[in-house]
Amino acid sequence: KSCSILVTDANFECNEENIMLQAMDNSHIALVSVEIGAPGFTSYRCDRTMPLGVDLTSLTKVLRCAKDENICTLKAADEADVLNLVYDAKSAFFSPFFFAFMWHGRDASSPFPPFFLLCSALLPLFIHLNISLSSQTPITSSWPETKYDTRVTLPSAEFTRIVRDLSQLGEHVRIEVSKEVVRISKLKAKSSAEDEDNDSIPTGVVIEMNQHVSLTFSLKYLVNFSKSGSLSGEVQLLMSNDVPLLVAYDFTQGYIRCYLAPKIGD
C-alpha cells in the first residue's frame, strides 16, 4: 500500500531468501526499495528466482478486501502470468469458498469488475484472487549505495505528524541537522517571508553526525513516505549535503527504504 502511492507498477523479485521490490516514481525524484525476508512469512517457498511484475494500484485494491485477521497467501506458478492471492478467514464457521477472477491490471481504461463489490460483501469467506503479471527486466538491488554524514532516528509517528502538519502550510521543507538539534522548517511557497515556523522535535530522537547538513525537500513525497510509519516504531533519516535523503523503516525480517532527491541551488 505504501509503495502504490509512489509507483504504479513494479517487480517483486523473489528468491530463496526474500522478496524484494525496487522502483522509481514517474518523475524519477523518489525511489522505493522494499525487502521482506523469508523468515518474515509463516511459510515461504521459492523454487526458482523470478520477477513478479505487478500493477500495484490493482494489488492495493485487492488487498483492501483483506481483513486484519485474514492470512494472505501469495502464489505464482512457474511460467504463470497470474499472481494468486488467497485470503483465509480462519473461521471454521464458514465452509471454504473460492472466488476467482482475473483482470488485466495494466489496462487502466478497463472498468473494475462489478462482481468485485460482491466479492467484498462475501468477506470473511475464503477468497481466491488473481492478478495478471507482467514480465519486466530484473532490477539491481544494490543501487543506490551511499554513505551518509548524518543519521537521525525518531519515532515514526512523530515524523508522520511533522510532515503532515507542515504539508498543510507549505510545499517544501528544510531539514537541518547539527550536533544537538534537528530543525525541520517549513519553507513558504513564496520567498517573501523571512521567518519560518520551526518544529522542535520531542524526545526519542537520536542524532548521529559527522557534518552539519541542510537540505530542502518536497513535502508531498515525505508525506507519502510517512505512510509506511505503521510498519515500524522508528524511522531513520540519513542525509548528506546535496545527496538524496534516505528515509528508512526497518521492521522484523525486512525494510522499506525511500530515497528522495533534494532541491539544489539558491
Binding site: 523518489a30 525511489l31 539491481t140 551511499t146 532541491k263
Partner: peptide
C-alpha cells in the same frame, strides 16, 4: 531558484 534534479543525477544511471 532551487531546481529539482532526478535521482540519476546523484546516483548515476541505474
Amino acid at each position: 531558484a532551487k531546481t529539482q534534479p532526478g535521482l540519476k543525477n546523484f546516483f548515476g544511471p541505474k
